[in-house]
Every structure is written in structure tokens, then in C-alpha cells.
Design a binder for these strands. Structure first.
Length: 760
DNA sequence: ATTCCAGGTAAGGGTAATTCTAGCTT
DNA sequence: TAAGCTAGAATTACCCTTACCTGGAA
């Protein structure tokens, strides 16, 4: 148990596990509990789902009850296996920027499986010690290491970037500053005092790493792209003139200093390009062995000074030398064997067996050991990268899901070579190539539900993972896939689906633009009571959005009737009805429509194009259309009636070309008959593989169309047996609605959300 | 004068994405 | 033989850490 006391005499945020606690722009507190730390207290053999409740209590009776009269809590198990989870608390009163440090005493305790476990903790103090310390020297680091501190290194995860962006947003908002670049590039050190320290909060990285990251993110001379031949020429001249004064050279070229520095590293006048000659290879090998004091045949993958090697080789740059050695020469010299399809499957299995929650946790050195066809750990990692990219949306699914999907995919191919052959469309099915399994998508949707617990913690239920083939070689409409999932469950209050988007008001009441990371906006229409409007807020992350649609009576008391919040890795769209949120069975419905449709949506305003997310955050788009009704609403088909109370529709689109946007219109009745009959042509291709792994179901759905149409998979997308929520199952048994109320996708031109509403 | 703080610079190891190309099939 | 295709090689823009530096404040 640890107590985190901020620099305040009044506030204590106390946790009983090691959690990262952040606060978004709306004052929502986001806690993240890493798996390894949770494991300290969770029995290893526990098979209980990691449902945890967040318990708020106050040492000061005034604190929560008075100042934050309504707090909704969302507990999100990140996967069915790990014990990590995220908790989001939404206080309906505005929480000021500094309230965490200046407010009242709040105790946060994490309860698991309805038992209050006293959980030992590494605590936030340690996190703070790292992220609040500006240390770059070896002594500083040794000192912290000796005190038992650990911090994250390597590539920043999306989650970290989300936290950072959220912190920056909050900092800007609190100070009324519009553009972070004002602070970063224009203010003096004194003026921006504490900026970096503030935005580093919740990040387990050295302050210096945060600083570098922020500079890169906001430097518009970064991410400029490929150097033109003219730029290269100019760069050469500037290099002669200014030497290693990268800042000056960069300024002259309109590039960042590190960019021009990196580019210069690649261009040596003496460098050859293209295929290595035997002489060059021989020289490289000799130099590497000489500089590392190794013998020919020894495996050398680390501890090589490539700059020194390149210097000695003479005709190649350090990058070229490293790449050649690690990806070919060392393996060839030490008698490596060819990489096979079996190796590929083995790699997936081995990675799965590692049971790591994050790809960054994979020890590639260890994985590459004693594997003759692996050229180097670095090469193996790049191999994994190519395997991973067989999944078109690999960036949008969690790592465990990705692994499961790949495993299932390969097993399916192994058991059904015909599928491989058909999908590849060529005679290369027996080769070790990956071509046959490219253009696969994994779809994950998760449902959540309010329970009777106050103040409304969520328990999760899940929609199966779906993998759909969308081979672009098979069809000009290849990137178009579609399916519609309709759930008709009275208890559903929360819908969660990948990937993500961003809400922006359009100026038209009740209509919002939904913006994806790639700056494409689409309208969001709230088909609900006129008194319910959406308030879009800056998301804490582009990955996850929570929409809280509070009841009309609550709306009278607050301007924030809907809260949008994001955090990785999934999108959540949630309505919270203030009345009877404990109702176990109501008639709420939820429609998920990931259909791809041609866009006759209005162009997004220019304002939406600008800088909503950093360049490096890109998400594909998909259509998401959850609709939530509370107990006042009995049927989805009634949604256009005035009975609708809380109904939210959200849609966005896949990034598809104009030609991809030509999809045949299907009426609901067409669809209903279609998926019952017309696709039953090929026994092989009709095969739907469904495997339940833990609580998650993965479907592999080959399609005769080369892509998934609504008619292909609807029946499989949501088999009744895959819903794991007991309440929902109970409801299903009662009504048997889910299977019978599958909603069709709507017309190709997305007449708009009204059509979707009325499609029943 | 010294130490600390809050950056700042350069070097270099690395990753991930794209482009090129040799070799294969049609 | 040419065209098309693909896997693997090569390239490169960008990322991250490390080590050392700087100028002002304490």
C-alpha cells in the first residue's frame, strides 16, 4: 500500500496497487495497473476474470459526496488473461487542473472479485521519482536504479503518447493557451517553468525523455519526409560550410537538426549502393570479427561499433554494414538454414507461449537463441513485423488478440490448404511466402454493461473477435468489408469497439463530426431526446472514446451532458442513464455497423484537419453505430420515436479509395435472404472456423467474395454462444433476440444515420 | 566559487516503413 | 521472350539513449 501525497497539505491520493494515475482534460482520473505489479497480489493460478471494482472513499466526508456528487467508474480488464486493467472515473463536476493536488482527501482502493485485497505497491512515488527527475548522467541513473527504480525505455507506446497528449491538453486548457508550440518554442525557460514536469505526470519515463519526445512531436521541421535530390545537394554544400553544426544546417534546409544529422550519416561520398560485392562482404566479415575479437562462424549480433566498422570497410555506411551483417552475412557465415513456413508458425507459437501482454516485452535475443534459420534477433523481429502485417489492422488490435488471431489463422491454413490456395490466387501456395495470408483483418468488439453496483462499475462482456479476409487481389472492392452486428439486450450500457475516432461539434445541434486520426471527419448524429446533446471534448487518446449520455434531468444541472474520453486500447462509447442504471434488464439495444459505405457526408471543416493528433498517430476508420436506449425504449425499431432517451450513433469510415466505395446496396430483406442462401456455394470457402480461446472467440471467415459482405458472416459474427456475459446470456435465453434481430448494413451511400435508424 | 537545475547538442544504435531488384511464374 | 508478380534485400526517415555541455539561479 502506498500513499501518494502531492505537494499539498490537503490531498492524498492513496492507492492499494501500483497504478499509474492520470487525469484528462475533463478531470477524469485514469488509472492503469500494469500486469506484473498486479501479479504480485493475484494468485497465479487464478482463473477469475479480472473484474475489479474501484472503490472511492473519503477521509473527508465533504470530499466526494459534496464536491463530486456523481462519479461513474469504468473498470476495464485489458484482456481476459492478464490481471491488468484500466479504471476511469468520471466526476460530473468539473475538476480543476490542480485539484488533485489541492483538493480533498480521496482514497482510491482497488477491489478484486468483491474482496478488498490489501495490495502491496511499488506506488506512484517511484513513478514520480522517475518522471519528475531530470537526469541524464550515468550517476543519476545509477542512483535511481540502486534505489530500486525502474522506468520504461524504447519506443513510446500509444498509451504513453495518449497520456502525454492528455497532459499537454490539460496544461494548455488550464492556462488558456491554444498552441503547445507557444510554450515549447517561444516561451523562455522561466515562462514555461514546470511545463515538462507537469506533462510528464503519469509517465514512467525520465523527464528528459519526455522533453525530447515533445520537441519531436511539435517540431514542424520534423516529419517533413523524403529528401529531394535538390535538398541532398544543398545539404552537401551546407555540410562543407557548417560542419557538424546540425542546428544551422537544419535551419537552412527547413529540417530539424536531428533530421539533417541522420541524413548526413547516410551519405558518404565513398559509399556504394546496391548489391554487395564478394570483396565487400569479405571485408565486412573480417572487420566485424577483428573489432569484436571473434572468429569466423561466431554469432555476433551486439557490441559492434558500426561507425568503426564502416570506417574500415570504406565503401559502405554504418547502416549498410549493420544491415548486411545482421540480416545476412553473419547468418551465412555461421551456417544458418533457410527460414520456412514452419519457422513462421513456430515463431507465432513461441511468441504466444511467452504470454507477454506487450510486444515490447519480448526478448528477441532469447527467442532467437539456438534457432539456425534465424539470422539475428533484429532480423527475427523484422520477420515478426512482416508476419504481423498480414493483419491489415494489426495496429488496432491488442497484442494478445493479434497473437491469437495469427495462431488461429495459421492453424486454419494448415488444416485447410485449399483456403490458402484460393486466397492467393496463384500457384505459389506451397511456397514459404506470406502472400496467401495477407489482407486479413481482425475485428474485436467488446460490450460492457452497467451493473447494480453503485456508483456503477462496469462488468465486461465481449463480442467475438472476427477475422475477415479482404484480399485485394481478389476483388477491386477488396478493402470493402462489411458486417452488421445487432444486439438487442436491455442491459447494455456500454459499447466498445476498435478503432477510434474523435468527436467535433459541427455547429448543427445534435450532429457531430467524427474525426479519425487521419483527419477525416464524419457526422455524428445523436438520435436521442432533444434535450440530450453531445459535448465533444479533447480525447485523452485517439484510441478510446467514452461517451456518457446522462439523463435529461441531470442535463439540467450540468453543461457536460456527454463526456468523451479516450484511452487505449479500445474505443468505448458509453451512455450512463442516471435513472435506474442498476436495472438488470431493460430494452436497450446496440447496433454495431462496421459497414463501409460511400461517403456523401459533408466535408469536414478545415479546423478539423489541423493538428488534432500528432502525425504519427493514424488509425484506420470504421463505422461504429452503437445505439443505447434506456428502459423507456422497447425496441430498436422505435428509435425514431420520441421515446428515445439515450441513443448515440457514431460512424466513421475505413480509409478507402473512391473506387472502393462502390458497394451494392442491400436492403434488410435482401440481406436476410442472402446470408441464408446465396453464399452457400463452396463448402471450403463457406467454412467458418470458430475457436474459443479463454473467454474470447476468434472467427476466421473466408469469403467467396474475397471480402466480407454483410451476408457472409452475420450469422457467425455473433453466435449466441460467444457472448460471455451471464446477464446478457440470461436475457438472450429469455428473448432469444440477438440471433433474430441482426441488423443489415444500410445503403451504400449512407443516406445517413437516419437510414440506419430506420433500417428495421 | 560551487552546485544544481533545466535544458541543449551531438553521436550513434536502433526501428519501421518504403523502395528496389532478382528471380520466378505465367 | 516479355510481362507480371513477389520475397527478400537495400534504403531511409525517424526514434531513442547516452554522454557531455551550457547558462542562469541558488
Amino acid at each position: 500500500m502506498s500513499t501518494v501525497e502531492e505537494d499539498s497539505d490537503t490531498v492524498t491520493v492513496e492507492t492499494v496497487n501500483s497504478v499509474t494515475l492520470t487525469q484528462d482534460t475533463e478531470g477524469n482520473l485514469i488509472l492503469h495497473c500494469p500486469q506484473n505489479e498486479a501479479d504480485e497480489v493475484d494468485s497465479e493460478d487464478s482463473t477469475e476474470p479480472p473484474h475489479k471494482r474501484l472503490c472511492l472513499s473519503s477521509e473527508d466526508d465533504q470530499s466526494i459526496d459534496d464536491s463530486t456528487p456523481c462519479i461513474s467508474v469504468v473498470a476495464l480488464p485489458l484482456s481476459e488473461n492478464d490481471q491488468s486493467f484500466e479504471v476511469t472515473m468520471t466526476a460530473t463536476t468539473e475538476v480543476a487542473d490542480d485539484e488533485i493536488t489541492e483538493g480533498t482527501v480521496t482514497q482510491i482502493q482497488i477491489l478484486q472479485n468483491e474482496q478488498l485485497d490489501e495490495i502491496s505497491s511499488l506506488g506512484n512515488e517511484e513513478v514520480s521519482a522517475v518522471s519528475q527527475a531530470w537526469f541524464t548522467t550515468k550517476e543519476d541513473k545509477d542512483s535511481l536504479t540502486n534505489k530500486g527504480h525502474k522506468w520504461k525505455q524504447g519506443m513510446w507506446s500509444k498509451e504513453e503518447i495518449d497520456i502525454l497528449m492528455s497532459n499537454i491538453e490539460r496544461y494548455l486548457k488550464a492556462r488558456g493557451i491554444k498552441d503547445a508550440t507557444e510554450i515549447i518554442f517561444e516561451m523562455s525557460k522561466d515562462e514555461r517553468k514546470d511545463f515538462y514536469r507537469t506533462i510528464a505526470w503519469g509517465l514512467n519515463r525520465p523527464l528528459f525523455a519526455v522533453y525530447r519526445r515533445v520537441l519531436r512531436m511539435y517540431d514542424d521541421r520534423n516529419h517533413v519526409g523524403k529528401y529531394t535530390p535538390e535538398e541532398i545537394e544543398k545539404l552537401k554544400e551546407l555540410r562543407i560550410k557548417h560542419g557538424n553544426d546540425w542546428a544551422t544546417i537544419g535551419a537552412a534546409l527547413g529540417r530539424s537538426a536531428s533530421s539533417v544529422k541522420d541524413r548526413c550519416r547516410l551519405m558518404k561520398d565513398t559509399c556504394n549502393t546496391g548489391k554487395w560485392t564478394e570483396e565487400e562482404e569479405k571485408r565486412l566479415a573480417e572487420v566485424v570479427h577483428e573489432l569484436t575479437s571473434t572468429e569466423p562462424g561466431d554469432t555476433v549480433t551486439q557490441g559492434v561499433s558500426w561507425a568503426a566498422v564502416a570506417e574500415r570497410v570504406g565503401t559502405r555506411s554504418e547502416k549498410q554494414c549493420r544491415s548486411k551483417w545482421l540480416n545476412y552475412l553473419n547468418w551465412k557465415q555461421s551456417g544458418g538454414t533457410e527460414w520456412t513456413k514452419e519457422d513462421e508458425i513456430s515463431l507465432i507459437v513461441r511468441i504466444a507461449e511467452l504470454d507477454v501482454a506487450d510486444e515490447n516485452d519480448i526478448n528477441w535475443d532469447l527467442l532467437a537463441e539456438g534457432w539456425s534459420s534465424v539470422r539475428s534477433p533484429q532480423w527475427l523481429r523484422s520477420k515478426w513485423w512482416t508476419i504481423k502485417r498480414q493483419i491489415a489492422n494489426h495496429k488496432d488490435v491488442s497484442f494478445p488478440v493479434l497473437i491469437k488471431g495469427l495462431k488461429q489463422l495459421h492453424e486454419n491454413q494448415k488444416n485447410n490448404p485449399a483456403l490458402v490456395e484460393n486466397k492467393s490466387g496463384s500457384g505459389v501456395a506451397n511456397s514459404s511466402s506470406n502472400s496467401s495470408v495477407q489482407h486479413v483483418q481482425i475485428r474485436v468488439a467488446r460490450l460492457e454493461e452497467n451493473t447494480a453496483l453503485s456508483p456503477s462499475p462496469m462488468t465486461a462482456l465481449q463480442i467475438p473477435v472476427q477475422i475477415t479476409h479482404v484480399s485485394s487481389t481478389d476483388s477491386p472492392a477488396a478493402t470493402v468489408d462489411s458486417e452488421t452486428i445487432t444486439l438487442n439486450s436491455g442491459t447494455l450500457q456500454t459499447f466498445e469497439i476498435l478503432p477510434s475516432f474523435h468527436l467535433q461539434p459541427t455547429g448543427t445541434p445534435g450532429t457531430y463530426l467524427l474525426q479519425t486520426g487521419s483527419s477525416q471527419g464524419l457526422p455524428l448524429t445523436l438520435t436521442a431526446s432533444p434535450t440530450v446533446t453531445l459535448t465533444a471534448t479533447a480525447p485523452a487518446s485517439p484510441e478510446q472514446i467514452i461517451v456518457h449520455a446522462l439523463s435529461p434531468e441531470h442535463l439540467l444541472n450540468t453543461s457536460d451532458n456527454v463526456t468523451v474520453q479516450c484511452h487505449t486500447p479500445r474505443v468505448i462509447i458509453q451512455t450512463v442513464a442516471t435513472e435506474d442504471i442498476t436495472s438488470s434488464i431493460s430494452q436497450a439495444e446496440l447496433t454495431v455497423d462496421s459497414d463501409i459505405q460511400s461517403a456523401d457526408f459533408p466535408e469536414p471543416p478545415d479546423a478539423l484537419e489541423a493538428d488534432t493528433f500528432p502525425d504519427e498517430i493514424h488509425q484506420p476508420k470504421m463505422t461504429v453505430e452503437p445505439s443505447f436506449n434506456d428502459a423507456h425504449v422497447s425496441k430498436f425499431s422505435d428509435r425514431n420515436s420520441t421515446e428515445l432517451m439515450n441513443s448515440v450513433m457514431v460512424r466513421t469510415e475505413e480509409g478507402i479509395s473512391d473506387t472502393d466505395l462502390k458497394q451494392e446496396e442491400e436492403s434488410p430483406s435482401d440481406l436476410a435472404s442472402a446470408y441464408g442462401t446465396e453464399d452457400l456455394e463452396s463448402p471450403i470457402e463457406e467454412q467458418v472456423d470458430q475457436t474459443t480461446i479463454d473467454d474470447e472467440t476468434i472467427l476466421i471467415v473466408p469469403s467467396p467474395h474475397g471480402f466480407i459482405q454483410a451476408s457472409d458472416v452475420i450469422d457467425s459474427v455473433l453466435p449466441l454462444t460467444t457472448l460471455t456475459d451471464p446477464i446478457l446470456q440470461h436475457h438472450r435465453e429469455e428473448s432469444n433476440i440477438i440471433g433474430s434481430s441482426l441488423c443489415s448494413p444500410v445503403s451504400e451511400d449512407s443516406k445517413d444515420v437516419e437510414d440506419l435508424v430506420n433500417c428495421h
